[in-house]
Amino acid sequence: MKAIKCKDLIKRYRRKKALDNLNLSIEENRIVGLAGRNGAGKTTLMKILAGLLKEQSGIVEVYGRRPFNNLFVSANTIYIDDQMNFPSPLTLIEILEEGQRFYYNWDHELALSLFNYFGFHPKQRHNELSKGKESTFNMIVGLASRSPLTIFDEPTTGMDAAVRKDFYRALLKDYLNHPRTILLSTHYLEEMEDLLEEVVLMHNGSIFFHMPMDDLKTYSIGLTGKRTVLEPWAQEKEIFYTHDTGVDDRYLVIKNNLSDKEVEDMKQAGIRFSPVSASDLCVYVTDEKGRERGVDDVFNRSADR
């Protein structure tokens, strides 16, 4: 059964189209990364999937049901973002206990051990936590709920590197014991490359691409060498990114559909190959400002005035 299915989904905020004919389908029991620039519509999509927002048109289904205002979806989904608010009279431990009462698959033992591992104090309150601590606590709630569809909206905001690492490890460990559909929106795609099974890249309210992480890693290749040498090779290739360094050196990112022969010849020609990380590729392909210009141009232009 499909965990998530969206067909021609449209969501409009006043004039701007937050989601524009979005089509997506995610199999169940997969860890899927949701990448995309700010304003690409990630949060809107997730809130619709969690049943918090109403879609304008199109079909959206979570485990075969329309999420908006649907108790079944809400019972089998958890949406974790940095605006999770819990009533202030409840201490952190009491919040976990509420989670235990509400969620059918809730693992309280896991919740408590994570709670202690990350050094929370039972009597603390949710609004007293720092940004990082709050994200960590929300993550614990998300994991312990073991909801068939667990959605994390930028779960690692404010977390330091060590905690992020622990989070990925905890997520994988618990996923291995209790496989479920996990959807994570993140800006740290490079840190999660080994964790995610699939990546969905969103751009301007629709899906740019949706592919397994392994394919994404080999989807493009980086070429560095003299501009003159690279020029002929790059003619008919699909270029994602170019960047000139030094006098005549250039760095090109192209689609990785080179034959072995081509690779051999290019190596002969002194072109060096380098892998392109998934997160870099995502940045390149969604570059609005045109392939060449980068932020340096902002400075260059001011310099030569």
Partner: peptide, 16 residues
């Protein structure tokens, strides 16, 4: 009442 995220010392917990 303290519905939002405001910090409210003292009057926390089960005082009510």
């Amino acid at each position: 009442f303290n519905p939002g995220k405001k910090k409210r010392a003292g009057l926390q917990g089960k005082a009510g």
